[in-house]
């Protein structure tokens, strides 16, 4: 059995690519995966105001792109996520020392990011940042999963299988802190399907969730090894990267 085949280069390899278009695409993928965790991190850990945090996130990804901060990543020293957070910390400290306004906009298109939405979510994010690395990791996973759920909804709608997503939404995305137990029987009754149909749909949806999440996950790590480790930790799966060079 092969693992989940993924056929493109790591995001770091793309960042280091000679082709400017490839490099820009890699930075956009990185920004998409990390802007929200970065914003929440700056708000919670550094207690920046919403405006300061927004400026800092935009400035960081723009300057990182222009000055090649992230190309210096060494997989032997840390995970890419940790490296990126450390770069963000350093950027913030440099900005404070220089007391200069951060540069907004630029080549990396991050102007359309939903900062007001991220700010609304902040109320639901832990206020206690005891371990910055762990906080950043948890927020990265939260953002990854949220994006995957959105991708899943679109994919099932496109394929004409909204029932599968409805089962997933009712059973696995229902807020589990509201005290109401969601049994297979109660969700099946609510959807008007037999329990066996529901459990089959849930199996299919969870497998799809895992497969879809691996695609953006690949854009958040710095090496094949790190990708394998993250996939193993998150989903208990081993990924097959042998097809990598086929593109």
């Amino acid at each position: 059995m092969e693992g989940f085949p993924l056929t493109h280069l790591t995001v770091l390899e793309r960042i280091r690519a000679g082709d400017p278009a490839v490099r820009l695409g890699a930075f956009s993928d990185l920004a998409e995966g990390y802007w929200r965790p970065s914003y929440h991190y700056l708000r919670r850990q550094w207690r920046l105001s919403p405006e300061q945090a927004e400026d800092m996130v935009q400035g960081f990804f723009t300057v990182a792109f222009e000055k090649g901060y992230l190309e210096k990543f060494d997989p032997a020293k840390a995970r890419f996520r940790t490296f990126l957070r450390t770069c963000l910390d350093r950027y913030l400290q440099n900005q404070r020392k220089a007391d200069t306004a951060v540069k907004r906009g630029g080549a990396v298109d991050i102007r359309s990011l939903d900062f007001p939405g991220a700010e609304r979510e902040l109320a639901l994010v832990s206020a206690d940042v005891q371990d910055p690395d762990r906080f950043f990791r948890d927020e990265t996973i939260r953002a990854l999963f949220a994006r995957t759920v959105t991708d899943m909804r679109e994919a099932y709608a496109r394929e004409g299988k909204p029932r599968i997503f409805a089962a997933f939404e009712r059973h696995d995305l229902a807020d589990r802190e509201d005290g109401e137990a969601r049994t297979y029987a109660s969700v099946a009754a609510a959807l008007g399907v037999p329990v066996t149909t529901l459990t089959n749909d849930l199996h299919a949806a969870r497998r799809r969730f895992r497969e879809l999440a691996l695609v953006p996950l690949r854009n958040l790590v710095g090496s094949d090894e790190e990708f394998r480790a993250e996939a193993r930790e998150l989903f208990g799966v081993e990924v097959d990267l042998d097809l990598k060079n086929e593109i």
Partner: peptide, 24 residues
């Protein structure tokens, strides 16, 4: 879309669960 800690934890858990779809 915002996923609470409980939902993220649940998704991490069920994503690794076996696909025993034959119903036995």
């Amino acid at each position: 879309m915002f996923l609470s800690n409980a939902i993220v934890g649940h998704l991490r858990d069920v994503a690794t669960w076996p696909d025993l779809a034959d119903g036995r």
